[in-house]
Design a protein around this nucleic acid. Sequence first.
RNA 1: GCCCCCAUCGACUAGAGGCCUAGGUCACCACUCUUUCAAGGUGGUAGCGCCGGUUCGAUUCCGGCUGGGGGCGCCA
Length: 478
Amino acid sequence: MVRVRFAPSPTGYLHIGNARTALFNYLFARKNNGVFVLRIENTDVERSNSRFEESIIEDLKWLGLSWDEGPDTGGPYQPYRQMDRLNLYREYANRLLSEGKAYRCWCTREEIEKRAKTGGYDNYCRNISDAQISKFQSEGRKPVLRFKVPEKEVIVKDIIRGTIRFEADSINDFVIMKSNEIPTFHFAVVIDDFEMKITHVIRGEDHLSNTPKHILIFEALGQTPPQFAHMSMTLGPDRTRLSKRHGATSVRQYRESGFLSNAMFNYLALLGWSSKDNQEIFSKQQLIQEFSLEACNKSNAIFDPAKLLWMNSQYMKMKSAKEITELSIPFLEKAGYEKSNIERHRQIIEKIVELEKEKFRILEDVPERVAPYITEDIDWNLQLLQKFGIPETSKILSEILPEIKKIEQFERSAIENIIRKFCKEKNLKTGEVFHPLRFALTGMTKGPGLFELMEILGRDVSVRRIEKFLKKSMKDDN
RNA sequence: GCCCCCAUCGACUAGAGGCCUAGGUCACCACUCUUUCAAGGUGGUAGCGCCGGUUCGAUUCCGGCUGGGGGCGCCA
């Protein structure tokens, strides 16, 4: 039975890179009918914050990465939390201590730095006398527990990278229990991974160099290490680690600017993994079907928001107008429209969305294009009409207005007939009429087809807007 | 400083010795479609880091160099 885990530390929002790690774990678990575990690694009491834990969980859910297990609380699955498992770590730590595989170290950071020229700790406390220990104790020092690293070469067998050897003396005795009796990452991960019967550790390459430490702990505890798969890292455009200065790097930020969960899911899967047949758009099911660790790329990948944007536009097209409308509501509210106003215009919004759907890249694109249809006051920026000439277009509009008023069935084909007839009679190019008309009606130089647009607006609103526009353009002209 | 990983268009990648005149996608450019903005269609620019081997033949195998990334914390 395949069992994998995603183990974020709640020290910030869910990062794009972490989300990708979570995704790969998830895909691997689902592909193999395995179990996906979420474990919150909150042993850094200084930096951990439950606020971040909550946001990470929300974002994982949003991405559709659901986990399958949790501590026994009776309710829906909670994640495992390391701070709830301290007794467990202490138990194993004591065992290593009593077996002589770990020892107490009393050194201060300053002392270590002073002694060691390069590299880290010099294993000073491995063999100190009882007298020294009493002295340290009497000074009130709190010891840490260090792992006694055996002198042996460690071989890491990695699914993605193959076999990697680490020299015998490349690792110093490292801390496994801090002086506050909380385990360090290296220790807690190992204990949890075998306690949770994790079969495959899929994580970022930044942990590759730490893996020998982990393997050594597994061995000291008489456990067989899980299989490892170290994924390439996600970098920013300047090839350095993706970080805040690269702009939006959290899942949350993309979510809030109107990216679709499925698009993000799909895009992230393509970062460091690809199918053999050039396919780029995958449903979640297809991704689960096709995914394999062996097909993962070894080299680091640069996160490209432009391709994400394209991917998102593809998913926007796939959604129905109804869905897009529904999803847009928060963005319309954010753009300043009252909830009641949005509800009142719901049908109209949906119609516009239907017409404009393939033009949206993200949900945040919706409000602008929907605006003229849910608000009364149009703010005409006459500059935009400059190339047609304000006086000329005003003349055309005042001439066509009576014709529009006369249309009985105010629906697109009737409107089209009248307007095209008008163009012909006046010997005008269609563009000379269509563009000013669209502008007068919506205040925009872009939008749906003119006739569809007018049908949606209705005769009353259309007439009123043209009249209002004429009034404004005359005034500006003088 | 020591250790580890990586190396194909600007980006994501296909390629697992001859199928490569290096393929696809994003971005970019041009053309096209068109009542606008888009979308779409067609085409284009652009890449195997360098030096040695191995081989009849290297993008593909080996070594070195260079470059990039990561690790060496009482952070995870």
